[in-house]
């Protein structure tokens, strides 16, 4: 079988954010893997993510100048999974826990990266 991670990355490269969904529970999970965590359920399908989420935690990293500060966030997707990302299109220090954010796929192909922007 094609590795779930490879399927996910190829979709991302085509501009789609996908999640695995257990057919039995309907729960989505991330990162991609062979079976649903905890249940071990291997009966799952790929679904498109809505692409909306809420900032669960944020840290602003201050590298030594002149490199600018940047943020790292944990985002709770509306469908459930939590993932690490960065929010762009806003002053990194202005992001607050609870802010609503929308997924944006930066780049394409093998260079595609999942980012978020204020919703």
């Amino acid at each position: 079988m094609t590795a779930p991670e490879a399927v996910w990355r190829e979709a991302l490269g085509d501009g789609r954010l996908m999640l695995q969904r257990s057919r039995a529970s309907g729960d989505r999970f991330f990162p991609p893997r062979l079976a649903e965590p905890a249940t071990g359920d291997e009966d799952w399908e790929w679904v498109d993510a809505i692409g909306l989420g809420t900032v669960y935690a944020v840290t602003v990293i201050h590298p030594k100048p002149p490199e600018p500060a940047y943020n790292v966030v944990l985002v709770d997707l509306d469908e459930g999974p939590r993932l690490m990302s960065r929010v762009e299109g806003i002053d990194p220090a202005a992001i607050r826990i609870g802010d609503r954010v929308r997924a944006r796929i930066d780049g394409s192909g093998a260079d595609a990266l999942l980012l978020f922007e204020p919703a």
Binding site: Y56, A57, V58, T59, I61, Y70, V72, L74, S85
Partner: peptide, 24 residues
Amino acid sequence: RWDAPYRPLFPLSSYALAAARHMH
């Protein structure tokens, strides 16, 4: 490899996220 592209300081930023959430 899911977290690394966002350049968190390892392991420091993970603890920073926990601290930020605790403060919140």
